[in-house]
């Protein structure tokens, strides 16, 4: 059974079919089925250890770096299978960018942080093209005005919120079109969180965003679809509105109303 996000009319960006995942002998994801809609924000919620991060890291194959893991089932992005040995991981990871919990710019300048991906991928660009890309990326995360005179400044001297924006800009520069965000606001204060949320809503015009969050208000504020996970299962997946107002599963209701985990 495919549970679609209730957006049957919209383009499906990521299609997950019977996905199983093991860390050694421990099964962390069990028969996950879902379709993630293009240019929407999808929130993944659920108690600690239920497999949210694991699922997120399936989409850019970051689990590959962990020893002894095994994946079964199918995940398609833009209709192309991304599991299996023959997938071009470099272009997958360019396409599917990740924002981490702790803002983690490189100990380089603001400018070099943004062009890092481009340089790695040897997109031979002229100085001017690099400059343009930096400007465009910083503008998309609404940092340009703040930082345009400080591009040579070390990125580590920025505020936490600026750092997190910079990390998003870094993905925009490599032309990612899926943004995976694993609790991107959990180290930020409420004010910065609000600003990053605004940014996400702005970004969903062009990007498909999947965000893991422990913050129920956040999920209901910004996401279009929500998936509730529990012990490796995707218990419920659908329109955020309906999940938060009329969950069909008792366990979802318990979690959302705070009676669980």
């Amino acid at each position: 059974m495919i549970i679609s996000g209730g957006n049957l009319d919209k383009t499906i960006k990521i299609k997950i079919l019977d996905l199983d995942f093991w860390y050694g002998t421990f099964q962390a994801l069990k028969k996950i089925n879902a379709s993630i809609t293009e240019k929407k924000i999808t929130a993944l919620i659920g108690p600690s250890g239920c497999g949210k991060s694991t699922l997120l890291r399936v989409f850019n194959r970051m689990n590959d770096f962990i020893e002894g893991v095994r994946t079964e089932g199918s995940v398609e992005i833009d209709g192309k299978e991304i599991l299996g040995p023959s997938v071009d991981l470099v272009s997958l990871r360019k396409n599917v960018g990740m924002v981490f919990q702790r803002p983690n710019p490189f100990p380089l300048s603001v400018y070099e942080n943004i062009v890092f991906g481009l340089r790695i991928h040897r997109d031979h660009l002229s100085k001017r093209e690099y400059d343009n890309m930096v400007e465009k990326s910083l503008k998309s995360v609404l940092l340009w005005d703040e930082l345009k005179d400080r591009l040579k400044k070390p990125a580590l001297s920025l505020s936490l919120e600026q750092k997190q924006r910079l990390c998003i800009a870094r993905l925009i520069a490599v032309k990612s079109d899926v943004l995976l965000m694993d609790e991107p606001c959990s180290t930020l204060d409420p004010q910065s969180t609000a600003k990053i949320e605004e940014l996400m809503i702005e970004l969903k015009k062009d990007y498909t965003i999947i965000i893991v969050t422990h913050n129920m208000q956040q999920a209901s504020r910004i996401s279009d679809d929500t998936g509730f996970m529990l012990l490796g299962e995707l218990v419920e997946f659908g329109k955020t509105k309906s999940i938060f107002t009329a969950p069909s599963d008792k366990r979802t209701e318990d979690y959302i109303t705070g009676r669980y985990g």
Binding site: M62, F65, R93, G97, M98, R102, N104, F106, G117
Partner: peptide
């Protein structure tokens, strides 16, 4: 290790990550 993780998640190979991120640091 977060430096390595970001670099890899940007599509850099292991060796590129070592060469451009780990060694300079």
């Amino acid at each position: 290790s977060s430096f390595r993780e970001v670099s890899l998640s940007l599509g850099a190979s292991k060796w590129q990550t070592i060469r451009h991120i780990v060694l300079p640091n």
